[in-house]
Design a protein around this nucleic acid. Structure first.
Lengths: 145, 145
DNA sequence: GCCGTTTAGATAACGATTATTAATTAATAA
DNA sequence: TTATTAATTAATAATCGTTATCTAAACGGC
């Protein structure tokens, strides 16, 4: 299961000179245990019980470390909180505009579109961002018809 | 040119009971005159000369009015400032990761991808967001090879 | 011209994130 | 095991874009 990925991540971090502290391990392990793309604050609140005096800055610091190590992706949304995704496989997101839930879905990467953009704008294209918005099944059924 | 669109926008606003003040007209006309997808602060700074005591809140207020009237789109990027686009035609953006410049490009909307997402996730899909990142021609040539 | 509503401007407030700093801790070598 | 050193934590202040609040001014219909 995800224990493999967690152990691999710990090894990878050690390999680049990142110490494994209890807080760091807890944050990392939380990220690998959830499919919920949590915000920094959600991570903080989830670990508050086990680490009563952990600082929110510690959460941010470690998320940055994980990001720089290529273990985690940051998903940004305007002035709302960023969300963090430890699934580094190629995938896209569908986001519920009602409750904010994020669901993964697979689709071949949009390389053709990148090529067309490069041709028509002269940019040296490197990456893209694509996400889909709508109503999740739960929020559809809670609607008054 | 854009004068038509500007005049139409003014009429549209009047039609929904929005008064045309000098500040409001200046902001609107600036948006219709540029292809640069400016930030609120850039708009503010550009008009400072003509309106020495305009407040930045006025810029934000009017941008919200324009957004609600469907005249302007807000482009959000993580914790950076939002940018505002008065081109409401269907189009996508290529963004320079070096200087932040935003260039429009045309491409058929990704409806197929929306459909696939709806099928595989059960969401009631409504819209999507897609943008491409890279180096603009200027920033490519300023690079040390 | 009067009255009610919109709007502008000034400024305070907000919320997410980052910077700062002093104290603590993990990894390593002695 | 202990000492050393650099990394890390926690607390808190600071930052920055944006929004809320409030007062005064301007507008449009009567």
């Amino acid at each position: 299961m995800s224990n493999n990925r967690l152990a691999e991540a710990v090894e990878l971090l050690k390999g680049i000179g990142v110490r494994m502290t209890p807080q760091r391990y807890a944050i990392l392990s939380f990220l690998y245990s959830t499919m919920n793309h949590p915000t920094a604050d959600e991570i903080y609140k989830s670990l508050e019980g086990n680490f009563p005096n952990m600082s929110v800055a510690t959460v941010y610091n470690n998320l940055r470390v994980f990001k720089e190590a290529g273990l985690v992706r940051e998903l940004t949304y305007g002035d709302a909180s960023s969300r963090f995704d430890a699934n580094m496989m190629d995938h896209y997101h569908v986001i519920c505009r009602e409750c904010g839930k994020i669901t993964d879905f697979d689709h071949p990467p949009l390389f053709q579109m990148e090529e067309r953009a490069a041709q028509s704008t002269g940019y040296q294209v490197e990456s893209h961002r694509m996400e889909i918005y709508g109503l999740c099944p739960d929020c559809q059924s809670h609607r008054t018809q």
